[in-house]
Lab assay of single mutants.
Amino acid sequence: DRHTIHIGDITIHLEGFSEEELKLAEELIKRGIHLEEVKRILEELYR
């Protein structure tokens, strides 16, 4: 499954994450956390 996060003019595609995980990812990215770090956090929390 493919999910999309929109932040301003930026569109990020993250596959294989639930709606809850994507909301967390979006919040972290909006707070300035680097995408690679966001992915690592999600994997630690949900895998």
Rank of each mutant, 00 (worst) to 15 (best):
K39A: 08
E15Q: 10
H6V: 14
D1P: 03
L28K: 00
I10S: 07
I7A: 09
L35D: 03
L24N: 02
I29T: 04
K23S: 07
Y46N: 06
L42P: 00
E27H: 11
V38C: 01
E43H: 12
L22M: 09
G16D: 05
I12G: 03
L42F: 02
L14K: 01
I41L: 08
I29K: 01
L14Q: 01
I29V: 09
H6R: 08
E21M: 14
E26R: 15
R2L: 11
E44V: 07
I29F: 15
R40G: 01
I7Q: 05
H3K: 03
R31A: 06
L22W: 13
E26H: 10
I7K: 04
S18M: 06
Y46L: 14
E37G: 03
E44G: 01
K23Q: 11
D9E: 11
A25W: 07
E15I: 14
I7D: 07
I5Y: 01
K30M: 12
T4F: 02
E19K: 12
I41D: 00
D1H: 10
G16V: 11
L28V: 01
L45F: 06
E15W: 15
R40S: 03
E15S: 13
V38K: 00
E19D: 13
E27Q: 11
L28T: 01
K30Y: 15
E27M: 15
I10P: 03
H6D: 08
L35R: 03
L35M: 10
H34R: 10
G8M: 05
S18E: 06
D1Y: 01
E36K: 05
E37Q: 07
E27F: 15
L42G: 00
E19V: 13
E15G: 10
K23L: 08
A25F: 12
F17S: 03
L35T: 04
E26G: 08
L14V: 06
A25Y: 04
I12H: 04
H13V: 10
H3E: 07
L14M: 08
D1I: 10
L45E: 02
G8E: 05
E15V: 13
Y46P: 01
E15N: 12
I10M: 11
E36R: 08
R31I: 03
I41K: 02
G8H: 07
I5W: 00
T11R: 07
E37P: 00
I12M: 09
G16F: 11
E36A: 10
E44P: 00
L24F: 11
I12E: 02
T11V: 07
I12K: 05
I10E: 06
E21R: 06
S18L: 10
V38R: 00
E20P: 06
E37N: 03
D9A: 13
Y46H: 07
L45D: 01
R31T: 06
E20R: 06
L28Q: 00
R47N: 13
K30G: 08
Y46A: 09
H3T: 10
L24I: 10
H34P: 14
E21I: 14
E20S: 09
A25P: 00
I10H: 09
E26C: 13
E37C: 02
I12V: 10
I33M: 12
E19L: 15
L35N: 03
R2G: 12
H13F: 11
E37K: 07
H34N: 11
L14G: 03
I5L: 02
R40Q: 06
H3Q: 04
I29C: 04
E36N: 08
T11Q: 10
T11N: 01
H13M: 11
L22P: 00
H13A: 08
E20V: 08
R31P: 02
E37H: 05
H34V: 11
E15Y: 15
L24E: 02
I33V: 10
A25D: 00
R31D: 03
I41A: 04
L14D: 01
G16M: 08
L24S: 03
R31N: 06
I29N: 01
I5A: 02
R2C: 10
L24A: 04
G16K: 06
R2E: 11
K30S: 09
L28I: 02
E20Q: 12
G16R: 10
L28W: 14
S18Y: 06
E27C: 05
E20C: 12
E26Y: 15
F17P: 02
S18H: 08
E36M: 13
H34K: 13
K23N: 05
I29Q: 01
K30Q: 09
H3R: 02
H3W: 13
H34E: 09
I5D: 05
F17N: 04
A25L: 09
F17H: 04
D1T: 06
G16A: 08
I5T: 05
E43Q: 11
G32K: 01
T4M: 03
R40L: 06
E37I: 13
D9T: 10
K39P: 01
I33H: 05
L14T: 03
L24C: 04
R31M: 08
H13N: 06
V38A: 02
E43M: 15
E43A: 12
V38F: 09
H3C: 02
H3L: 13
E36G: 06
L35I: 13
E44C: 15
R40D: 01
E36I: 09
L45K: 01
E43T: 06
E21V: 14
E43Y: 15
L22D: 02
D1W: 00
T11M: 09
E27Y: 15
E43I: 14
F17V: 06
R40N: 02
H3G: 10
G8D: 08
K30F: 15
I5Q: 03
E27T: 15
L28M: 11
T4E: 12
T11P: 04
K30D: 02
L42N: 00
G8I: 07
E21C: 01
I5M: 04
K39F: 15
R2T: 13
I41Y: 05
E36D: 10
F17Y: 13
I33F: 15
H13Q: 11
K23R: 13
I10L: 10
V38D: 00
I10C: 07
I29R: 02
E19Y: 14
E15F: 15
E20A: 09
E19I: 14
E21G: 13
L22E: 04
E15K: 13
E44D: 10
K23T: 08
L45Y: 08
E43N: 07
L45Q: 01
Y46F: 14
I5S: 05
G32Y: 15
G8C: 09
T4C: 12
I33L: 13
K30A: 12
H34G: 13
D1V: 04
H3P: 09
I41G: 00
H3S: 06
V38S: 00
D9I: 09
T4Q: 12
H3N: 10
I29M: 07
A25R: 02
D9W: 12
I10Q: 10
H13K: 10
E27D: 07
S18C: 10
V38T: 00
